[in-house]
Amino acid sequence: MTSRQAYAPSLRLENVTVIRGNRLVFNNLNLSVAAGELLWVRGANGCGKSTLFRVIAGLLGAFTGKVHADGKLALADENLALDPNLTVGAALHFWAQMDGATLADCDAALAAMDLLSLADIPVRYLSTGQRKRAAIARVLASGSAIWLLDEPYNGLDSASSAHLDKAILSHIAKGGIVLLAAHQSPSINVSDSLILDAKGRSV
């Protein structure tokens, strides 16, 4: 998992402006996250947290500005990206293979999110919380240095949230970067927080 990181990752946004349709989502957003940091991205519904993650991940282009991501990125958002007809283990293994990870990495990710007992269950039978845990396990198994977790606590019970907290703490302790979009304050200490408002500004 994170032990495959070979160097200290970093993430920097320089004067990033994003316009979607007629709406200015961000205006000259600057951001810098160093290795071993956890950034909490917060703001009201529709303020652009998910858009920010998609811009960082390169899925959406910025109108102006640049995103410098030094390290492999992984995104867990509302889309599971696991084949519903495969078992949880097989679906995760598919992405692990795409990431050059091993079966052991995959099993470690499943264990970290307490999914080993569900490894032989088809993905389509998972509950909302279990699906969220599987998506996070996909991120863990990827061996990526920079994690973009969009509302990862939604649908998780307290035990699952604790598993996620532990995985995040382990990742940043190993020098990884975590960006966490969440409405509520995470129970773990954050290095910094970015508050986005509805007028395209960071507060």
């Binding site: 998609r54 991940a57 390169g58 899925l59 990125l73 992984a74 995104l75 958002d77 509302e78 889309n79 599971l80 990206a81 696991l82 084949d83 519903p84 992405w95 795409m98 990431d99």
Partner: peptide, 12 residues
């Protein structure tokens, strides 16, 4: 597209 598979491939 709906499942996010295309996004995951693009990120990779």
């Amino acid at each position: 597209r709906q499942a996010g598979v295309l996004d995951q491939l693009a990120i990779r």
